[in-house]
Design a protein around this nucleic acid. Structure first.
Lengths: 163, 163
DNA sequence: TGATACTGGACCGTTTTAGTACTGTTTATT
DNA sequence: AATAAACAGTACTAAAACGGTCCAGTATCA
């Protein structure tokens, strides 16, 4: 549905908070209070982010989490990947398997470009930026755009379905 | 999972084919053959696209579907909306309900900007362009980007969960 | 009148998501 | 050394969304 999972949403929010409060460390319990979500959920997200190397964790009493890198160096794209795997707008992109007659399908390659565009857009936004209301500037990104008409010869539009 | 549904994927492929073969009309059966998908699925997609006004349909013998508008005037964003509703990268955007303390949450407004950026990216790609391999040009789109630091005062990072 | 093809729902199995629970391990404190 | 706090890992369950099918209805043409 072209939607990010809640875990990813939660993750962004939590990391953004941590980015804005860099000094101290927070326990999962702390974060649950701050974000107003159940502890198990918060805990799950933090664990995943830790595993992905975005958070450093300290066990035991006095333990907790804190940002592993500079907020400018953690992008929204990275967080999403950490919590829901590689960004792939279509299944066609996710799986390596060719959709029947891949070679001729123009749609597929275009999806790749679109995917790349979205991904690089998300790659441009860092946690540091998320801490404050962003302004509407212009960012150029690699988006496929029309050009000289290339003849579309015998092209396959087949689509594979799998169960 | 930041992924478009299969129905949307199928829809793009079929519309792209119709865009490349503007003259004639095609029955659902025809399209099923072309796209190599089961008739019921193809039929479902075509129905939805017809309902959305992207296809004109003709009933009865000699019936079939054909593009309702010029390929340059149908965007990928439109197709996605036709098949899976409004584009909303987070649930926060989809529902109008405020996520507890909406007012102070910087993340939320930033998601809105990101959503808008993605949406307008998809808005820029038409069916006409999908028929041929796109080239890597640069398109500028309204993407939120950092600016003068605005102090982040007492900001709420709460997140609402619902069942 | 009959065959063809779109229309509109309902329906159902599967997968993914969202959230919980539990057991184990590390660490600081006393 | 014992204890309590906190992270780590994994398994599990309920609910939602997805993907696909099916059927009864209506329009159209021959």
């Amino acid at each position: 549905m072209l939607r990010v999972t809640k875990l990813a949403d939660y993750g962004i929010v939590m990391l953004t908070y941590l980015a804005a409060n860099r000094e101290s460390t927070y326990t999962a319990r702390d974060m649950a209070k701050i974000v107003q979500l159940p502890l198990p959920v918060v805990s799950k997200v933090l664990k995943l982010l830790g595993k992905a190397g975005l958070l450093t964790s300290q066990r035991g009493t006095k333990g907790g989490y804190s940002l592993a890198r500079d907020p400018q160096e953690i992008t929204v794209a990275t967080v999403i990947r950490a919590l829901e795997g590689p960004i792939a707008v279509t299944e066609c992109i996710a799986v390596n398997r060719d959709c029947n007659l891949e070679l001729g399908c123009p749609v597929r390659t275009n999806w790749h470009l679109i995917n790349h565009a979205i991904q690089s857009a998300l790659e441009k936004i860092t946690l540091a930026e998320m801490t404050k209301p962003l302004n509407q500037s212009l960012v150029c990104l690699n988006l496929p755009v029309p050009e000289t008409a290339s003849k579309n010869l015998d092209i396959s539009y087949e689509r594979q379905q799998q169960h």
